[in-house]
Computed example of a mutant assay.
Amino acid sequence: MSRISPPGYPRRSPAQTQLQLSRNPKLRGPKRSFRRRLQYFYWRLVRLRGSPDAIARGLACGVFAGLFPLFGLQIVVGILLAIALRGNKIVAAAGTWISNPLTYVPLYAFNFHVGQWLLNDDNQINISLSSWPEVEELGLTIISTLLVGCLTVGLVCAFCSYFLGFWLVRRVRDSHRSKRRRQD
């Protein structure tokens, strides 16, 4: 697809445009690049297709799936939930990024403690590798406690992210509409 330049402006190749941008002091430096990224994500949010409700449902599905210890399957689960609940699939995939290698340990430790609290299991788990059946039994206890905590925290965070996402999309789109009205 070719770009049409306004009358009086020369056509530039993408390489010339990139060179001109790199020479501009206003568009260089870490502060500028962070600001440009924020503007990019702002415009992506404004231009995202779908109703605010569908986008918020996708975000909630992604956050819910991201809080489960399903390494490598979180995006798939988030998209499948978004399909089932008619949410935005792209936002669902992005919502799973709530868990990443930097947040795995604190997130799942918190979920485990919530599971312990809900199951009234105040025992400190001591892992001794003396016998395999003991380790297997302890493994099932740890997994069930973690899954109860993940389900609870996932539901609460999905609920909160739905309303936060709905509010954010509506606010961004309304502000964009008001700016366009002022320009017209």
Rank of each mutant, 00 (worst) to 15 (best):
G50E: 03
S175A: 15
R3K: 06
F68R: 00
F64H: 01
A60Y: 07
N120H: 13
I83D: 04
V114Q: 05
H113T: 00
R86L: 08
I125M: 05
F34T: 08
R37V: 14
R12K: 15
V156S: 00
R44C: 08
R180F: 06
D121T: 04
G50R: 00
C157Q: 05
V135I: 13
R35G: 14
K31R: 14
L19D: 14
T141Y: 01
S13D: 04
I90E: 03
C157A: 15
Q124K: 15
V135G: 01
R177P: 00
G66M: 01
M1I: 11
F34D: 08
R49W: 01
F166A: 04
R28V: 02
L102D: 07
Q116T: 10
Y40M: 08
R3L: 03
L70M: 11
R44K: 13
C61D: 07
F159A: 11
V114N: 02
R181A: 14
A84H: 09
T145D: 04
L168M: 09
R47F: 12
D122V: 14
L45W: 10
R182S: 12
I125V: 12
Q20E: 15
A82N: 04
N120K: 11
R170W: 06
S144V: 04
L67F: 03
Q124W: 11
R171H: 12
S144F: 10
L85Y: 03
S128F: 13
L119A: 10
F110Y: 07
L21G: 09
Y9D: 00
N123A: 15
G154Q: 07
S144Y: 12
L80Q: 07
S128H: 15
R49Y: 06
Y42G: 01
L129K: 00
Q16W: 08
L73A: 08
P52Y: 00
P101I: 04
I75A: 11
G87D: 06
V148H: 01
W117L: 13
V46R: 12
I127R: 09
I4D: 11
A82R: 07
E136N: 10
H176A: 15
P106K: 03
I4H: 07
G50I: 00
C150Q: 04
F112G: 05
I83E: 11
K31V: 13
R181D: 10
P106L: 00
T145M: 05
G154N: 06
Q183K: 13
L73G: 10
L38A: 09
L70R: 05
Y108I: 03
L27A: 10
W167C: 13
K179W: 08
R44L: 12
V114I: 11
E134Q: 14
Y104P: 10
L102E: 10
V172Q: 03
A94C: 14
R23T: 09
I127S: 10
A54S: 14
G66T: 02
V172I: 13
